[in-house]
Design a binder for these strands. Sequence first.
DNA 1: CTAACACAACTCCTCAGACAAGTAGAGAAG
DNA 2: CTTCTCTACTTGTCTGAGGAGTTGTGTTAG
Lengths: 222, 222
Amino acid sequence: MAQVTRIPLADQAAELLLDRIRSGEWPLGAKLPGETTLAPQLGVGRSTIREAIRQLAGRGVLATRQGSGVFVTALEAPESWDDVLRRTDILAVIEARIAIECEAAALAAERHTPADMVSIRLALTARDEKRSEIESHVDADTAFHRAVVAAAHNPILLDLFDSFTPRLRGAMVEMLRLRSAFGSDEDHAVHRDLVEAIARRDAAVASAMSRTHLDSLRSALG
Amino acid sequence: MAQVTRIPLADQAAELLLDRIRSGEWPLGAKLPGETTLAPQLGVGRSTIREAIRQLAGRGVLATRQGSGVFVTALEAPESWDDVLRRTDILAVIEARIAIECEAAALAAERHTPADMVSIRLALTARDEKRSEIESHVDADTAFHRAVVAAAHNPILLDLFDSFTPRLRGAMVEMLRLRSAFGSDEDHAVHRDLVEAIARRDAAVASAMSRTHLDSLRSALG
DNA sequence: CTAACACAACTCCTCAGACAAGTAGAGAAG
DNA sequence: CTTCTCTACTTGTCTGAGGAGTTGTGTTAG
C-alpha cells in the first residue's frame, strides 16, 4: 500500500535520525557527524538535513552549537502529560485526584485568606444554581473544587488538578446522564459542610469531606 | 547586560513567531503569511525562516502543507512538567509528595501482592544497610518509598512520584549534610512500622506513618 | 620544558537563486 | 450549473557562496 501523501524528505530524515539516536548509535551528549557528512549519507541536500535537525532541536532531542557541532540532549521527546492521562484508566485518575484534593482541602483550611473564602462561597452558590443542565453543573462543580484547591496556595497541586479535570469531565457528564444522584440535597450538604470546615480551619474534617465526595464519585464511575 | 552568546537568527525568528501566535494575531488553525512574505518582513533569508518554522513544527505549534501554507496547530507548546517543578518552591513539591504518598500507602495496604511485599521488604533492608554514605542512603530511601507507591498499582501516582524525586534529591542530600538525624533508629522504626501496617492491610496506619515521615522531612527542609 | 600566542581546519549560520512538486482558485467550456 | 483546465501561489529541495564561532595544532617567547 503506497502512501497517498508524500512525506517531506526533511521529516523522513528527522525520523531516521531519531531512530539512530534511540538505537544507541549516538548516546546522550554525543556529537553527530557534520551536516556535510550526514547529508550525502542520507542522500539529501544540506538544507534538508538542517531542517531535520531543527525539527529535532524543537523537540528537545538535539542542540546545535555554532562552530562546535550537533549534540544529543535527550534520548527521546518527553511524553506529554496529557497523553499519559488520556491513556490511563479513569479510575486511576480519580484516585490521583482524591490524593491531591484531600491534602489540598486540609491545606486550604490552614491557609485560606478572606479572598479565598469569598471565591469559594461564590463558586458554591453558582454550583447550587446550576442543577438543571448537566454540563454546566459539572463545570460549576469543577470550578468550586478548583477554588478549594487554589486556597491551598500550592501551585503544583493546582496544576495537577487542572491537568486532571479535562480527562474527568467527559466521564462525569456521561455518569450524570445515567444516574442523576448528583444534584441531590445530600450532595449539596457535603459541599456546604466542606466549606464550613475550611472556614473554621478544621483540616481533618475538610479532608474527610473531600474524601466522602470523591469516593462516591469513584464508586459511581467504577 | 548584553548576552555573550549570539542567538541564531532562526531561533530568534521562532520566538518572534511564537510571540505573535500567543498574542492572538494568528488564531488556532489560521494560515500564516507565505515564507516569501515572512522572510523580508523579519529581515532574514528564506532558509532561516524555514528553519524557524521547522523548529516550531517540531514543538507541535505549526504544521506545513506543501502547496497550501503554514498553519497554527496549537496556541503554545505544552510546558514540560520538569520545568514546572524546577521553578517551584521545594516546600510545595514536598506537600505534593505528601498528598500522593499518603494516598498511595493506603492503597498499597489494600492492594499489595506478595511480590510487592517482597520488593518492599528488600528495599527496607537495603535502606537500613546504607546508613553510612549520605547519597546512597537518600537513594535507598527513595527506592523504598517508590516500592510502596508501586504497590498501590496506580500508574499516575507512580509517575508523579518519579517526577518529584529528582527535584527533591539535591535538597535531601544537602539537609542530611547539616543534621544527621535521618539515619537514626527512630527514623528506621517509622519505616518498619509502615511496612508492617501495609502487610496487615491497615490503610489508616500506613497513611499516618507516611505522613509522619514526610512531615518531619518538611519541617527539616523548611 | 612550559606557557602563551597565531593560525588553520572544522563546524554551524545565513543568504541568494533556481527549479520541482503540490494546492487552490479563477476562468472557460460543456 | 457543473466540470475541466490552466494559472498563480505555496512549500519542498538542491546548490553555491561567504560569515562566524570553536577547537586543536604548531610555533615562539620566556
